[in-house]
Amino acid sequence: MTSLSTPRKGSGLGSVSTGRKVKDRTVQGLVYLAFLLALVPLLSVLWTVVVNGAKRLDPTFFQFSMNAVAGKDPGGGAYHAIIGTLQQVAITSAIAVPIAVLTAIYLVEYAGNGRLGKVISFFVDVMTGIPSIVAGLFVLALWLLTVGFGFSGFAGALALAILMIPTVVRATEEMLKLVPNDLREASYALGVPRWRTICFVILPTAMTGIVTGVMLAVARVMGETAPLLLTIFFTKAINTNPFEGPQASLPTFIWEQASDPNQTSIDRAWTGALVLIGIIMLLNLLARLVARRSAPVRR
């Protein structure tokens, strides 16, 4: 004991050896370098989109559709596409988030080592790997061709929901697993039933992470183009009813405008991309604000 508690003097506490210093510096440098490398594409994309998209970022763009606007005409806007995207993503989230969160709750809180839990977990993994066009084809085959509905924003939302569910399940599952078991036991020991424990103790504790996971999934599906072309088709006109008729969306708007060989169209496509990024960032900020209000309080 005494040898440990008396402060050591002299040579025992030498300075850090040169070798370790060099290694420390080298690794530090490599980490910074990796960080900068990762930033390059991100900043490059942002920069290009902002520079090219700023040209048409005017009130007209947010007020008008492309109805009766030809490719080479100036003016025209993405009003129809913005409405479409917001409606489609809202419907997608309304379908996917409850299913996904409930699935994750089942997997973490109820399934244990049961067979059903393993099967569900396996299929969630399989769903994560579905290419987006396959989700679109699936809805096309089932909802449009077999059941017989026409193109609609809702059909697109179905395809997007298939893509969104596995991402949200995985994110929510990870967050629920992070909730300390102590809290579950504390709640059970108060004579609180399991479902109330989940609703009022576990979900609030994991809320920030779940919201982040949902936002990442929303951002992902918002940029999907291929499944929408198969299920919503596209239109130049405003269609505010997501349950009937083709609807526009920002990704399909960008795709359509960018494939038009006129500079005016290409400018519109860039602005569409800028608006899409803007909407995703706004939603992210909003979600963070909401999450902060229910976040676990720290010291």
Partner: peptide
């Protein structure tokens, strides 16, 4: 468990709740 209460080894207050809500948790829930 409502009749036989338990206190654990490590203090485990509910992190999302205030002091008041922690004490009231068993009743509220």
């Amino acid at each position: 468990r409502r009749v036989v209460g338990m206190v654990f080894q490590r203090p485990n207050p509910f992190p999302t709740m205030s002091i008041y809500d922690n004490v009231a948790a068993g009743l509220k829930l």
